[in-house]
Amino acid sequence: MPAKSKAQQMAAGAALAAKRGEKKKSELKGASRSMEHSMTEKELEEMASTKRKGKKEHVSKK
């Protein structure tokens, strides 16, 4: 699933780094912390590799 915003893509990248052991899990906050627990490495990789061009900074909740 592709990221819907730059913020979501960046959170997925942070969660992926923690899952791979490149970053401490204790450094994660908010969405990246829950993503690390609930998503597989493959799902995080797909979301983190989404192209940023044309993405909003944040997506509003509806």
Rank of each mutant, 00 (worst) to 15 (best):
V59H: 15
K51P: 06
H58N: 11
K19E: 04
A14I: 01
K55R: 15
R20G: 06
R52A: 09
K61G: 10
S60N: 11
K61M: 08
R20T: 13
E36T: 00
M39K: 09
L16H: 01
G54P: 09
K61Y: 08
A18Y: 03
M47R: 00
L28E: 00
K29W: 04
K23Y: 05
M47T: 00
T50K: 08
Q9H: 10
A17M: 12
A17C: 08
S5H: 03
G13W: 01
R33M: 07
A48W: 11
K56H: 11
A17R: 07
K56T: 11
H37K: 14
G21L: 13
M35L: 07
V59Y: 08
E41R: 09
M1D: 12
S60H: 07
S34C: 15
A15T: 02
E41D: 11
E36L: 02
G13F: 00
E22G: 10
A48E: 05
T40P: 02
E45P: 03
L28Y: 00
P2R: 10
H37C: 04
A48K: 10
G21R: 14
A11I: 02
S5W: 05
L44Q: 01
S49L: 05
A17E: 11
K24H: 12
K61V: 11
K19A: 10
E27P: 05
M35T: 01
G21H: 13
T50Y: 07
K25N: 14
S49W: 02
K6W: 05
S49G: 13
Q9L: 13
S49F: 02
L44D: 01
E27R: 06
K42Q: 15
E27S: 15
E41F: 04
S26W: 07
A31Q: 07
K29L: 13
M35A: 02
Q8V: 05
